[in-house]
Design a protein around this nucleic acid. Structure first.
Length: 852
RNA sequence: GCGGGCGUGAUGGAAUGGUAGACAUAUCGGACUUAAAAUCCGAAGGGCGUAUGCCCGUGUGGGUUCGAGUCCCACCGCCCGCACCA
């Protein structure tokens, strides 16, 4: 019988369904295991990257089932967000229809992959059942003081009359209108995540099973710094502005500042613009800038001299010019900075541009040169010579020591005080858009901002909206806004802002434990299933999503929705790589790139050409898949061509899971060949006559080594390495002359070890070999430790670190004996040339190095 | 600009500081076949050499070590994030 995946896969998926194998249930007799992949956005079709991501989770889920766990492996959709509205604007229709149609399509595409998912728990964040509970959480957070309102800046498109997301702002212009974007201040809702800066930072140390790089990125993002908080006296400022609070992380530079600067949105700058048209014009210019940090950092540094003088707190004779500058951010620190050009590149560029003096505070040891074009910014632990040191010169200490001593001195003299600051800002959750979770509050003329009553939840989105006119359809809906005030009952207006979609994804993992409950969570269920034992997702979520979720878990604990043990919701995190694909490109007459689908290209020995015209094609290897570059691989056609098992096997086979893997047709072909080989092998063994037993011991030994290696591989996310071992064992088995019973045991073990990757093929082999029950429900094989050790080992002998010979020695031979044998080796004797070795290093079981 | 990461044969990659290149692709050779495909077996980092073998080799330059792809420093290139993309 030929290997026929389409038939096999459908059959066994039905069998698993019937046995309800993947339904997550709470029982007392087994430990639980919760494995979760970051849920997808319903963009339309599944992507080969999804296949890889969910296969990784599925390997873990199936492995944990086989090792005796109650496994929770759910799937859902992160379904609110801009693309649905954009689609509604571009092609008509309704975001809701577009979203749910996409979800249906994607579920239909995912099911044939045979994932061990409990589909009964599926939900989308745009289900009123889900977002109604999210509104309940919001109300609890509000009551607990975790949410507040303040003014904040948004990107405003003056032509489309709408708020733009950062990604909709391209080079400072609106993506549709092409007009210059303005900054506009709106009153918006914020989560008090900054109150938890210290805790979120300190608790990173407990996340042992998170990648170190993610913890480091979060640490830097939260950004704890110890610095000096002080006030400049102001000379020539308007009444009521006598002093200016400033914070600096480099107190030692207080000995060399040459200017001070404030943000264009600083209250003082706003006060000045009301009477000075030039300042008003400058501030206006600053406000037209992109609001992203990257854009601010890259933009040309601009300043406006206000004419006001800032008086140095430690020495009133120092008067610094006060600028308004576009690189100072109002929402970090106090919105005012001290400029020390010699030791900050940005300050130096600014000083050179506006002809400000540059005062060296310290110099490298043994160097006299003054700072010219490059600021001197050594690591804080480096010892330098302070040429400006509280009136002295020539003090040699580290910057850190200088900062500490300066802080002490400033505090002692009452010039300022030491302060710990965090870079982390509060999380603004208001979005001026339709397709999101409505913020459940009401604005009443008499009572102000009033929370909606819980019994009135969910506050559902109205369906009768259209997107012909830009702006938020909730704002112009004729009736939706009208509602009685929950407090006094008078006519009032609903909040029309919706929530950031990051809110939706900040607690879905908890909701999966009781997805259809009429409270956000259910005590017994969260207590049983939380925490997520293994979370899997892209590195692009290293900061925002993961930090927001950590905050949310704390907030949910405070409001009684999560146990204390779940405030760090993800015990282990794994960040997986992308699936990439070569891009095929030719150039048109204007040298612009023209992209081609892989199926239109014929790859030949030294390149590729277009099938239709024979034109040579440039190959850009291993690029991120994108529709516009035509290098997207459709999982549906791969499954039709080769079957789900091949797709699953291949996406994990060639690269370590944390790295990108390039999809190649030849690689998929090879994976398919291998599965066919295993299938044929099963057939052959079933049909073979009983042998004489030669090689039984060798095959058993190889089998137990493979069990050991594959188990280790799965446990440590070494899926590609585990697959390499499975290739090796398949080759061993196919050449084996062992007896039928031993070969049968070997092929069944191979099927089991492959089952997390290729569950359908494994199930079929299991069935053919008459295994008990379902392979997916069979207990994981155990390696016999006694068969894992070899009696003899081959040791390489190095002479001066270069390999020159090999010796075979008993594995348990002691060091002195090994050294004796090594020194008697021909190559070693030749190198020694009758002399004695300077040193002999013997690493048991590893290597011998003779130094001559 | 700031923060984080990555860089190994023709290609994807393997390698607790211990024989660099496992496994796979592409390539080449052989078996089978009238032939091709499929399948099976085998070769293979580069250079020199009939060969035992010798030299070189993990982005570049330096350092630590008996020993470095792995650790440290600097540089180059690419990727991710930068708070309203999901």
């Amino acid at each position: 019988m030929p290997y026929s995946p389409s038939e096999i896969e459908a059959r066994w998926q039905k069998a698993w369904d019937k046995a309800a194998l993947f339904k997550a249930t709470r029982t007392a007799d087994k430990p639980k295991y919760y494995v979760l992949e970051m849920f997808p956005y319903p963009s339309g079709r599944i992507h080969i990257g999804h296949v890889r991501n969910y296969t990784m989770g599925d390997v873990i889920a199936r492995y944990k089932m086989a090792t005796g766990h109650n496994v929770l492996h759910p799937m859902g959709f992160d379904a609110f967000g801009m693309p649905a509205e954009n689609a509604a604007m571009a092609i008509g229709g309704h975001p809701k229809t577009w979203t749910y149609d996409n979800i249906d399509t994607m579920v239909e595409q995912m099911k044939p992959l045979g994932f061990a998912i409990d589909w009964s728990r599926m939900f989308a964040t745009c289900d009123p059942e889900y977002y109604g509970q999210q509104q309940a959480l919001f109300l609890d957070f509000l009551e607990a003081g975790l949410v507040y309102r303040k003014n904040a800046v948004v990107n405003w498109d003056p032509v489309d009359m709408t708020v733009l997301a950062n990604e909709q702002v391209i080079d400072g212009k609106g993506w549709r209108s092409g007009t210059e974007v303005e900054r506009r201040e709106l009153t918006q809702w914020f989560f008090k995540i900054s109150d938890y800066s210290e805790e979120l930072l300190d608790a990173l140390d407990t996340l042992d099973n998170w990648p170190a790089k993610v913890r480091l990125m979060q640490e830097n993002w939260i950004g704890r710094s110890r610095g000096l908080s002080f006030e400049f006296g102001l000379k020539g400022a308007p009444d009521g502005y006598d002093s200016l609070p400033v914070y600096t992380t480099r107190p030692d530079t207080m000995m060399g500042p040459t200017f001070a600067a404030i943000a264009a949105d600083h209250p003082l700058a706003r006060r000045l613009e009301s009477t000075n048209p030039k300042i008003a014009a400058f501030n206006e210019k600053c406000r037209k800038m992109d609001t992203t940090e990257a854009a601010m950092e890259k933009a040309e540094k601009l300043g406006f001299d206000t004419g006001i003088k800032a008086i140095h707190p430690a020495d009133p004779s120092i008067e610094l010019p006060l600028y308004i500058a576009n690189f100072v951010l109002m929402d970090y620190g106090t919105g005012a900075v001290i400029g020390c050009p010699a030791h900050d590149q940005r300050d130096l560029d600014f000083a050179r541009k506006y002809d400000l003096p540059v005062i060296d505070v310290f110099k490298p040891l043994g160097v006299e040169d003054d700072v010219e074009d490059t600021a001197f910014v050594p690591p804080k632990t480096e010892k330098v010579r302070y040429v400006q040191w509280h009136g002295e010169s020539g003090v040699e200490i580290t910057c850190q020591q200088a900062m500490d001593q300066t802080l002490e001195r400033y505090e002692a003299n009452g010039w300022g005080e030491a302060q710990t600051q965090y870079r982390l800002r509060d999380w603004g959750l208001s979005r001026q858009r339709y397709w999101g979770c409505p913020i459940p509050v009401v604005h009443c003329d008499d009572c102000g901002v009033v929370p909606e009553k819980k019994e009135n939840l969910p506050v559902e989105l109205p369906d009768d909206v259209n997107f012909d006119i830009p702006g938020n359809p909730l704002d112009r809906h004729p009736t939706w806004r009208d509602t009685p005030c929950p407090s006094c009952g008078k006519a009032a207006k609903r909040e029309t802002d919706t929530m950031d979609t990051f809110v939706d994804s900040s607690w879905y993992f908890a909701r999966f434990t009781a997805p259809h409950a009429d409270t956000p969570t259910v005590k017994e269920d969260v207590e049983y299933w939380m925490n997520v034992d293994q979370y899997i997702g892209g590195i692009e979520h290293a900061i925002l999503h993961l930090l927001y979720s950590r905050f949310f878990a704390r907030a949910m604990h405070i409001t009684g929705h999560l146990p204390k043990t779940a405030i760090e919701p993800f015990d282990a995190l794994f960040t997986q790589g992308m699936v990439t694909h070569a891009i095929y490109v030719t150039r048109d007459e204007n040298d612009r790139p023209v992209y081609h689908f892989p199926e239109d290209v014929e790859v030949h020995e030294n390149g590729a050409r277009l099938g239709a015209t024979g034109e040579e094609v440039d190959i850009i290897p291993s690029a991120k898949m994108s529709k516009s570059k035509k290098n997207v691989v459709d999982p549906v056609s791969i499954i039709q061509q080769y079957g789900a098992d091949t797709a699953r096997w291949f996406v994990l086979s060639d690269s370590p899971p944390e790295r990108d893997v390039e999809w190649t047709a030849s690689g998929a072909e090879a994976a398919n060949k291998h599965l066919t080989r295993v299938w044929n092998l099963c057939d052959r063994i079933a049909a073979m006559p009983d042998g004489d037993g030669t090689g039984d011991a060798d095959l058993q030994k190889a089998m137990h080594k493979t069990i050991h290696d594959v188990t280790l591989g799965i446990d440590s996310f070494g899926f590609n390495a585990a697959i390499a071992k499975l290739y090796g064992f398949t080759a061993t088995l196919s050449k084996s002359k062992a007896s039928k019973a031993v070969q049968r045991e070997a092929i069944m073990t191979l099927a089991q070890l492959m089952a997390p990757f290729t569950p359908h093929l494994s199930e079929d082999i299991w069935h053919h070999q008459k295994g008990d029950g379902l392979c997916a429900a069979a207990p994981w094989p155990k390696a016999d430790e006694s068969l894992l050790v070899d009696d003899t080992v081959t040791l390489p002998i190095q002479i001066n670190g270069k390999r020159r010979a090999e010796i075979d020695v008993p594995a348990d031979l002691d060091k002195a004996e090994v050294e004796k044998i090594a020194l008697a080796n021909e190559a070693v004797e030749k190198a020694l040339n009758g002399g004695r070795p300077k040193k002999v290093i013997v690493v048991p079981g590893r290597i011998v190095n003779v130094v001559v």
